[in-house]
Design a protein around this nucleic acid. Sequence first.
DNA 1: CTTCTAATGGTCCTAGAGTTCCGTTAAGAA
DNA 2: TTCTTAACGGAACTCTAGGACCATTAGAAG
Lengths: 203, 203
Amino acid sequence: MSDERPDPGTVRPGGRTAKVREAVLRAAGDALAEDGFDRLDLAEIARRAGVGKTTVYRRWGTVPGLVADLLTEMAEDSLPRSETGSLLGDLTAQARLVQSTLSDPRQGPLFKALITAAACDPQTAEALHRFYRIRTEEWAPCVTAAIERGEIPAGTDPTEVIRAVSAPLYYRLLIGGDPVDRASADRAAKAAATAARAGAFTA
Amino acid sequence: MSDERPDPGTVRPGGRTAKVREAVLRAAGDALAEDGFDRLDLAEIARRAGVGKTTVYRRWGTVPGLVADLLTEMAEDSLPRSETGSLLGDLTAQARLVQSTLSDPRQGPLFKALITAAACDPQTAEALHRFYRIRTEEWAPCVTAAIERGEIPAGTDPTEVIRAVSAPLYYRLLIGGDPVDRASADRAAKAAATAARAGAFTA
DNA sequence: CTTCTAATGGTCCTAGAGTTCCGTTAAGAA
DNA sequence: TTCTTAACGGAACTCTAGGACCATTAGAAG
């Protein structure tokens, strides 16, 4: 009954297939950063990647499908986490990292486009949530450490603290339109650290 | 030289023209809430509104153009502001209002779509920024009042406090994927109030 | 009321995104 | 190495979003 048909690229993932995927995902990232989500054309992506457009349509099918795969790829490489010894120091480092990413001429538009794509497609949304869940978990230990140091109350939800740092910066990027500058990053970190110390993030 | 050509609908804004605009904007809102930004088809909007598609293309031209007009319309009607007598009370009321909007089956998807549209088009982005600037200014007085009561430090930036309340909720809606529930609203309000008291939002 | 024309709304047309077909290339197995 | 077939890529096709054209309707002014 069941017409077993594995997804293209899974049976022979070596050599050529891997090169194609890498080239297409790179081209997709470039196009997203430059033109945005809605102006994306899979044929244009194929041209940039030096790949037949049939291949792109066959393996990824739709724009959201391609973006979801890009997010899966991006979720794999993690970023360095700093340990300054104080919650405020750690959160400030985190906020500044987010700030520099979102204000980067390539990364800023790219993340904006990724979030846009996720808002339009459930599959992409799931990939985005996974991406940020991983990022959040990578940062969580600095909050746990603060709990162990007695700097903030036991029962504080680490992920809530981490998200509280990023949220104002993404709000500026997506909604307010204000520049995501160093001052706003430091303010976000300070507000989150202060609220955490006062026990605002306890379950 | 200059071929003066006023925008369609500005010379004879009475009767029919106004009815068409109303019907189209309503249909656009419905379609955005149901299908999302990327699946929007101006011909479909015209059909829903009981209007010729030529009219829609002539007056609004593109999907972002239509969304921008919808945002301009939405910016005009304001919402009631509560005065509870304490900063935490006021911010909690605000957070719960945002929460109920974002978790509403129609409003939630609609706002998601509006923000998505703004991320794709500068004109729409400008309209969105205006919309939220107005909303923020409507809420700002409760922070000013808290300053006058001596509840929070002078020099506190009211708009930053207001945005700090909303930001975590929008983060959940757009990025984290977690439900925008009552608990998260109360937590956002508490965190913002606490941080404000500690002077985290002073310029 | 009559006149003028802005604005509407059918109908037809065009460009390009997405699909299908089929021959070619190369990954993986023996 | 050879063999099998997964995966690629060019070319031709389809289908529809968006635009052009023009006849019709109805505000606004006198």
